[in-house]
Every structure is written in C-alpha cells, then in structure tokens.
Computed example of a mutant assay.
Amino acid sequence: MSDDLKNILNNSNKDIDNQKLMDYLSKQLSKQDTHDLEKMMAEDDFINDAVEGLEQLGDVKKLPVSVEQLNRELQKQIAKKKERKEKRRIKDQPWVYFTIILLLLLTVLCYIIVKKKMDKRPPADKPATSQLHSYRGNTL
C-alpha cells in the first residue's frame, strides 16, 4: 500500500480541503466559505459526519497531534496484519516440493510394479469338481 492510502486526513480529498475544515472549526473562514462548506455538509453525509467528529475532539490545536497518533496506530495495525499474513504463507522451499513430487512418483511406480506382477502371475489352479465333491464327502 502506498503511504497516501495509509494516512488519515491526507491531502488527497477530492471534495474538501483539510485546511478548510481546520479553518472552519477554528472559525477563521470567511462568511462565503463558511456558507459553501455548510452547504456541502448538507448535501454530503460523509462530510457532515467528518465535521461533527472533528468538533467532538474539542481543541483544534490538538487535532494534528490526534491525527498523527491515529496514523501511527494505523501503521502498527497494518504492520501486525502483514506480519500475520507472512507467517501464514507457506515459505518458498524447493526441497518440500521436491519431496512431495518424489513421494508421488514412488507411489505411482510401486502401483505399476505391483500391477505388472499381478498380471504376470499364472492363474491359481482350480481343483477339479470331482475332487471338491469327494473332499466334502459327496461323490458323483
């Protein structure tokens, strides 16, 4: 992921400038800009929620510190997820693949050898029916 995607309140917002939000919260915008921003807030729920959330933080001067802290926490979470994903991934070890292929080949080879031996074996001698009856005590 690029660093821009990982930063909260980065400067790539297409709808509103972050500095404009900060100026609005600190009441430093002109009346026209304030009106425009409030109009955007009325039209877009996301912007409205963002402004409300920023207002709940309280002091505007503490906001950059909060944003930096959120960015650090986000980076930590992403690093942990990436580390877990790496642990779960099967490492690229060629000897494992070689061993699996070798075992499969040996299994197929053993099957072929046993099958050929069974085909070459002469059929078992069947006792004559007269012998079977005399063995059971019955004669024909």
Rank of each mutant, 00 (worst) to 15 (best):
1 M>Y: 08
1 M>C: 10
2 S>W: 03
4 D>S: 07
5 L>R: 12
5 L>M: 10
5 L>Y: 09
6 K>T: 09
6 K>C: 06
6 K>M: 13
7 N>D: 13
11 N>P: 03
12 S>W: 06
12 S>N: 12
13 N>F: 15
13 N>H: 10
13 N>M: 05
14 K>D: 13
15 D>W: 01
15 D>P: 01
15 D>S: 09
15 D>M: 07
15 D>I: 11
16 I>C: 14
17 D>S: 15
18 N>W: 03
18 N>K: 05
19 Q>G: 10
19 Q>V: 13
20 K>Y: 02
20 K>N: 10
20 K>S: 10
20 K>P: 00
21 L>Q: 04
21 L>V: 05
22 M>D: 01
22 M>Y: 11
22 M>V: 15
23 D>I: 01
25 L>D: 04
26 S>C: 07
28 Q>N: 11
28 Q>G: 05
30 S>C: 05
30 S>Q: 02
31 K>T: 12
34 T>P: 02
36 D>H: 05
37 L>S: 01
39 K>F: 03
39 K>R: 11
39 K>E: 05
41 M>L: 08
42 A>T: 02
42 A>P: 00
42 A>Q: 08
42 A>Y: 05
43 E>T: 07
44 D>I: 01
46 F>H: 09
47 I>T: 08
48 N>E: 06
49 D>S: 11
49 D>T: 05
50 A>H: 00
50 A>R: 08
50 A>Y: 04
54 L>G: 01
55 E>D: 00
56 Q>T: 14
57 L>W: 04
58 G>S: 06
58 G>I: 09
60 V>L: 05
60 V>S: 07
61 K>A: 10
62 K>D: 11
62 K>P: 00
63 L>M: 14
63 L>A: 11
64 P>T: 05
66 S>M: 05
67 V>N: 05
67 V>P: 01
68 E>V: 04
68 E>G: 10
69 Q>M: 13
69 Q>P: 00
71 N>R: 13
71 N>T: 04
72 R>I: 09
74 L>C: 07
77 Q>M: 11
78 I>S: 11
80 K>M: 12
81 K>Y: 07
81 K>M: 12
84 R>E: 15
85 K>I: 06
86 E>H: 08
89 R>M: 14
89 R>Y: 06
90 I>P: 02
91 K>P: 02
91 K>D: 03
93 Q>N: 13
94 P>M: 03
94 P>K: 09
95 W>A: 01
96 V>K: 07
96 V>C: 01
96 V>Q: 02
97 Y>I: 01
97 Y>G: 04
97 Y>P: 00
99 T>M: 06
100 I>N: 02
101 I>C: 04
102 L>Q: 04
104 L>A: 09
104 L>T: 03
107 T>W: 10
107 T>M: 08
108 V>M: 11
109 L>S: 15
112 I>R: 08
112 I>A: 12
113 I>V: 15
114 V>C: 12
115 K>F: 14
116 K>Q: 14
117 K>A: 15
119 D>N: 08
119 D>R: 15
120 K>N: 12
121 R>H: 10
121 R>P: 03
122 P>K: 15
122 P>G: 07
122 P>L: 13
123 P>N: 12
123 P>D: 14
124 A>Y: 05
124 A>S: 08
126 K>F: 06
128 A>C: 08
128 A>L: 13
129 T>C: 04
130 S>Y: 11
131 Q>D: 13
132 L>F: 08
132 L>Q: 13
133 H>Y: 12
134 S>F: 08
134 S>N: 11
135 Y>P: 00
136 R>I: 07
136 R>N: 10
137 G>R: 02
138 N>E: 15
